[in-house]
Design a binder for these strands. Structure first.
Lengths: 347, 347
DNA sequence: GGCGGTAATGTTACCGGAAACATCGCGCGC
DNA sequence: GCGCGCGATGTTTCCGGTAACATTACCGCC
């Protein structure tokens, strides 16, 4: 295990074969786990492999086998916390299966950038493409691009989704926890500030909210659309229909909740005494908001791992498919100071 | 430009050559901008290229030319805002130069993970490696790993650095703006909460702070070390040496500032009336903190682009080097409500 | 003891490009 | 009129693997 000579070229299987006194094919076979090799031969080759610090040349491998070990990941430019961690998890899972994630970030609203990114991916002989920006528009565009490789667009693969959810009854254990918490505090008039509705994930989250309310025999007190950001949460917070008697607001994520908190503070509305606010994601900062935010913590990394594993299964990597059986971590309710029972004297 | 037949194999230069009635080498030459090709021939080939929707196979290209168009990026697992945008910018610049960034995230404290990541990169025949986690420990480790490819570890490439800064006088226009702002408000006793000191960027930022103060004839009123996070900022905020008569605190980034704000609020210390707080980075959320945070906005994407361009120059891509001349955007001071003149009656 | 069968290994072709080298054809100078 | 030089293009080889096919060598059996 001596360090490689600085200028030394990387050893090829031919070098290894020569050193071991076998043919390069024997080396190749051994590398692929072929069992029919005599122990003596095997040992010689293995020693040579270590001796020469052999590392496969992936370019040659993918050229020859016509199947690369790279997966393209298309991600939304401004990585929100959820997607970011999802990608982290997916990247880990890919690495564990011997794949590498080629991450291409793009601004999904910039057609030219999207096309450019797609063109680049085309030339990269990828095993497949995983799109992490579940916007309807982007999804269509990618599908149209007609890659010759497997394509998986991140859909509703929520770690907390219960097993039996049908397409007509979206369920999200995280959203259930949010609604259960507020209802158990006594809230009945709850407003929802959604993410951008052209994101399928956003629509899904809102539907899950409605479904969760319905299970309590309640209906939403209206909703507004934001953009995942504090700024848009702030705007939504300024035009909250307070006259409807709402006592709680659920935000699509913690950033939106932050904007809401500020808007309410500026209007002199006390949180949580007059209105409760809940976030979603539990970003590290949310504990230090004013007031500290009640939210739910979702294991996005696991979500990413699961997503990647199902992708690997899709492209036919059996080994990886086995790992899919990871037990899903349910979302955790995090109760802090932005939620409280509704003010007395209100219906 | 008809869409590719779904099942159609990708065209190779041989296919193009046959279609154009030339040799594959002529195609290859044309693709590389070789000028000595007769216009008539050139046109035929170009038409065939378009007709067949030729896309180069990068695996073959890198195998043959022994130089790939991929750049490995080693990034710290928990991407802070700055690094994240830096990578975004670097990725864009790379893409524009025809390179793709292979992003490998890692937890720099987990030796096994680091080694694993390095091993993976080894097999990826990369044009070079760009490390975005400027921690001393990680840097050493990467250097030891002895890649046979160019390696650039993100160092002090601050977009706002003035042209004439010597190694002994670190300068950061962003930090200058922070200090100038506070001093012009009348502050003279300023405390600094740094990022982790094993990050060279963090140390550099602190040195720049000290240098900026010195230019005003002042000295820091002490400092504490945090970890880029709100939680550590909060802890630092609880043990602030208020007895020293400090009137302002500068945080290494906005998250730390958020923690500080909360800690001060809990101690009943009014911001900005008793103590001013400044952040660094201007994350989108900082406008909605309580109170809205004064900070500086840094063009990290540009920093990434510049970094990538100098990297491309390093690995000898002349085309890219030309682009390096991008004019640097100076950091912008963003004054909000967390800073004010120091309380009267104090020295 | 020669033959068929199979396990272990070797040989050759091929993937899609790039580089080195070879060839062709034409204008020009002597 | 012929050879030379050079521009334009073609041919071959190589990059480092994988896959298909070929070849040993040894075994058991009739």
């Amino acid at each position: 295990m001596s360090p490689t000579e600085p200028g030394a070229a990387r050893a090829t299987i031919y070098d290894v074969a020569r050193a071991a006194g076998v043919s390069h094919q024997t080396v190749s076979r051994l590398l692929h786990g072929f069992t029919g090799i005599r122990p003596a031969t095997r040992e010689r080759v293995e020693r040579a492999l270590i001796e020469l610090e052999y590392r496969p040349n992936l370019a040659a491998r993918s050229l020859a086998s016509n199947g690369s070990r790279r997966i393209g990941a298309l991600v939304y430019e401004l990585l929100e916390v959820g997607p970011r961690k999802t990608i982290q998890g997916a990247s880990d899972a890919a690495r564990r299966a011997g794949y590498l994630l080629d991450i291409v970030t793009l601004d999904p609203t910039d057609d030219a950038a999207v096309d450019e990114a797609l063109t680049i991916m085309r030339g990269q002989d990828l095993a497949g493409i995983l799109a992490f920006a579940p916007m309807d528009l982007l999804g269509d565009r990618i599908r149209q691009a007609d890659f010759a490789v497997p394509l998986l667009i991140e859909a509703i693969v929520d770690p907390g989704a219960s097993a039996d959810d049908g397409p007509d009854a979206p369920t999200d254990a995280g959203m259930d926890a949010v609604v259960d918490h507020l209802v158990s505090l006594g809230h009945r008039d709850i407003f929802f500030v959604s993410g951008p509705r052209e994101w399928s994930a956003s629509r899904y989250r809102e539907e899950a909210f409605v479904a969760a309310l319905r299970r309590h025999g309640l209906h939403p007190r209206g909703s507004a659309e934001a953009e995942w950001s504090a700024a848009s949460g702030y705007r939504a917070g300024l035009s909250l229909p307070l006259e409807l008697g709402i006592t709680a607001v659920v935000a699509a994520n913690d950033q939106v909740a932050l904007g809401l908190l500020r808007a309410l503070a500026e209007q002199g509305i006390a949180v949580p005494h007059e209105i409760s606010v809940m976030g979603f994601d539990n970003i590290p900062e949310s504990e230090y908001f004013q007031p500290p935010l009640s939210t739910v913590s979702v294991d996005y990394e696991q979500k990413g791992r699961i997503l990647m594993n199902s992708f690997l299964a899709l492209i036919g990597d059996a080994h990886a498919a086995a790992e899919t059986a990871e037990r899903r971590n349910p979302p955790q309710l995090v109760v802090r100071s932005s939620t409280a029972p509704p003010p007395v004297g209100r219906p």
